[in-house]
Amino acid sequence: TFEVERIVRKKIVHGNTSYLVKWKNYSSKDNTWETEDDIRTKYGDLVDDFEK
């Protein structure tokens, strides 16, 4: 199971928000862009903290 360590960046393309996710126990080269809906479902607190 993958676990988010932190959110690195945010991008908005054509009105759709995605977050660059750093995965726990993986290197930064393994970071992936994930949709806001996918990340918010399980890691809403991390998204809220990133947006502060």
Rank of each mutant, 00 (worst) to 15 (best):
D30C: 15
F2L: 14
V21C: 03
F2E: 10
E36T: 03
Y43N: 07
V47G: 01
R40C: 06
I7C: 15
E51N: 09
K29C: 13
K22V: 07
D45W: 14
D48L: 10
T1Y: 13
V47K: 02
I39N: 03
T32P: 01
D48A: 12
W33Y: 02
D48W: 06
D45S: 12
T17C: 05
D30F: 15
G15K: 05
D45T: 11
E34K: 06
I12Q: 07
K24P: 02
G15Y: 04
V8L: 14
V13R: 10
S28T: 09
E5Q: 05
F50L: 02
D38T: 12
E51C: 05
D37P: 08
Y43V: 04
R40V: 08
K29M: 12
E51K: 06
V47Q: 03
E36D: 05
R40E: 03
K42N: 12
R40K: 10
W23D: 00
D45M: 10
T32F: 02
G44E: 08
I12A: 05
S18Y: 15
F2H: 14
R6Q: 13
R9K: 12
W33A: 01
Y26M: 15
L46G: 03
W33D: 00
I39G: 00
V4K: 00
G15M: 03
I12W: 04
E5S: 03
R40N: 05
G15R: 03
V21S: 01
K29Q: 12
S18F: 15
V8C: 12
K22H: 05
V4T: 01
D49F: 11
V8N: 01
V47H: 14
E3K: 04
R6K: 15
Y19E: 00
L46D: 03
V8E: 06
T35P: 12
Y19G: 01
W33S: 02
T17A: 10
L20P: 00
E3C: 10
K29R: 10
G15H: 07
S27T: 12
T32L: 02
K10T: 04
E36Q: 06
V13S: 09
D48G: 06
S18R: 11
E51F: 05
K52P: 03
D37N: 12
R40L: 08
G15L: 04
K11H: 05
D45P: 11
N31Q: 08
K52F: 08
D37K: 13
S27Y: 06
T41V: 14
E36G: 08
S28Q: 10
K10S: 06
D37E: 14
L46E: 04
V8W: 04
N16G: 08
E34F: 15
L46W: 07
D45E: 12
L46F: 07
R6F: 14
D48I: 09
V47I: 13
K42R: 12
D45F: 14
L20F: 09
K10C: 08
Y43L: 04
K24Q: 07
T17Y: 04
G44V: 06
R9T: 10
N16F: 12
F2Y: 13
F2Q: 13
E51T: 05
Y19A: 00
F50T: 01
K42M: 13
N25G: 15
L20V: 01
D37W: 12
G15F: 04
D48E: 11
G44N: 13
E5K: 02
N16R: 14
S28N: 12
K42S: 08
W23G: 01
T35L: 12
D49R: 10
V13Y: 09
R6A: 13
E34S: 04
N16V: 15
Y43W: 15
N25I: 06
S27G: 11
W23N: 00
D37I: 10
E36Y: 09
E51G: 03
R9I: 06
I12H: 04
L46M: 12
H14K: 13
D48H: 08
E5T: 02
D30T: 08
F50I: 02
E5Y: 04
I39P: 09
F50E: 01
N31A: 10
Y26P: 09
E34L: 15
I39H: 01
K10L: 05
Y43P: 01
D45Y: 14
S28Y: 13
K11V: 07
R6D: 06
I39F: 07
K11A: 09
N31T: 09
E34W: 11
W23C: 02
S18W: 15
D30Y: 15
N16P: 00
D37H: 13
V21N: 00
K10W: 04
E34C: 14
L20T: 02
T35N: 11
T32K: 03
T1H: 13
F50Y: 10
T41I: 13
W23M: 01
T1E: 12
W23Y: 08
R40Q: 04
V13C: 14
L20W: 09
H14I: 05
F50R: 02
D38W: 15
K29E: 12
T41N: 11
E36P: 02
K10M: 06
G44K: 15
R40I: 09
K24M: 08
L20N: 02
D48M: 10
F50C: 03
I12R: 07
N31E: 07
K10H: 03
T35R: 13
I12P: 01
G44D: 05
H14F: 11
N31Y: 15
R9G: 14
D38H: 12
F50Q: 03
K52W: 07
W33M: 01
E3R: 05
L20A: 00
I39A: 08
N16M: 15
W33T: 00
I12S: 08
T32Q: 02
V21L: 03
S18V: 15
K22L: 04
I7L: 07
R40W: 04
T1L: 12
R40T: 05
S27W: 06
K10E: 00
S18I: 15
I39S: 03
R40F: 04
Y43K: 02
I12L: 08
W33N: 00
R9F: 08
Y43G: 04
E5A: 04
K42Q: 11
R6E: 09
D38S: 13
S27C: 09
S28E: 14
T17K: 06
S18N: 06
D49M: 14
K42C: 13
R9Q: 10
D49S: 11
K29H: 09
L20M: 07
E51M: 05
E34N: 03
E5H: 03
T32N: 02
W33L: 01
I7R: 01
N25F: 10
H14D: 15
K24F: 07
G15P: 01
V47P: 03
V13W: 09
K22C: 04
F50N: 02
V21E: 00
T41A: 13
L20D: 00
K11N: 04
R9M: 14
T1A: 12
W33H: 01
L20C: 11
K42T: 09
T41M: 13
S28W: 15
K22Y: 04
K52A: 11
D38R: 11
E3Q: 10
V47E: 02
D30M: 15
R40H: 03
D38C: 15
D37C: 10
D49T: 10
E34A: 07
V47T: 03
L46Q: 04
T1D: 12
T41L: 14
V21A: 00
K11M: 10
E3T: 07
R9L: 11
D49N: 10
K24L: 09
D37L: 12
N31D: 08
V4I: 14
R9S: 13
G15A: 04
K24E: 03
D48P: 04
D45G: 11
D49E: 15
I7P: 00
E34M: 15
